[in-house]
């Protein structure tokens, strides 16, 4: 009688523990894996652009396509016209390049590139004020990728998962002694 009672309390102590672990792990999986799956839709760029071919094989610099304008503003992504300076006709064997020339260059259309760091309309960012930093400190390091990274679009806000958050801007400004006044970054 006595022994039976002890065994019963033992199993009673194990069961809640196991339930807790299962629930805890389950919650972690749901939060870290499941929820982002639901929240973000995965999108691919309209053209599978290879930075690797341009940077490594052709020896181009970032600035050749991503350049400043004369007034100090940043031109960002190159236009189809700029790309067509080389790609007016198909140069290689890549079917994606052929697609680009046929669908965009020949039809004089701009590519709807998905911008990983696109900021909301009320944010002002000056690239020239940050030109001493490496691009990859804020941007995804795409220089040696053959396929552009997956674009995770937040289904609720429509913004990219990689878009820098305000606290990240503020932290870096504070650490570097730059002003954190509202109008430094807002418009």
């Amino acid at each position: 009688m006595e022994g039976k009672k002890v065994a019963k309390t033992k199993s009673c102590a194990v069961l809640p523990f196991v339930t807790f672990i299962v629930g805890f792990v389950g919650a972690l999986v749901l939060g870290w894996w499941g929820f982002p799956k639901v929240l973000y839709s995965e999108k691919a760029q309209p053209i599978r652009f290879s930075h690797k071919i341009h940077v490594e094989d052709q020896g181009m610099d970032c600035e050749q396509c991503h350049s400043f304008r004369e007034d100090g503003s940043y031109a960002g992504l190159p236009t189809t016209e700029q790309c067509a300076e080389c790609h007016s006709e198909v140069m290689g064997e890549d079917p994606e390049e052929q697609k680009f020339v046929e669908e965009y260059v020949n039809q004089n259309r701009e590519v709807g590139w998905l911008v990983y760091q696109k900021q909301p309309d009320n944010v002002y960012f000056s690239h020239i004020a940050h030109q001493d930093f490496e691009c990859s400190e804020c941007h995804l390091d795409v220089a040696d990728t053959d396929t552009p990274p997956v674009f995770y679009e937040n289904k609720l806000s429509g913004y990219s998962k990689n878009t820098m958050k305000m606290w990240q801007c503020e932290r870096c400004h504070a650490q570097n002694g730059a002003s954190n006044a509202c109008y430094i970054c807002h418009k």
Partner: peptide
Amino acid sequence: CTFCHHRFAAAKEKARAEGRDP
């Protein structure tokens, strides 16, 4: 009114591009 603050930002960018103190 913001005193067209965006024009201030643009002027600072131009100064930076020309290597002057913004």
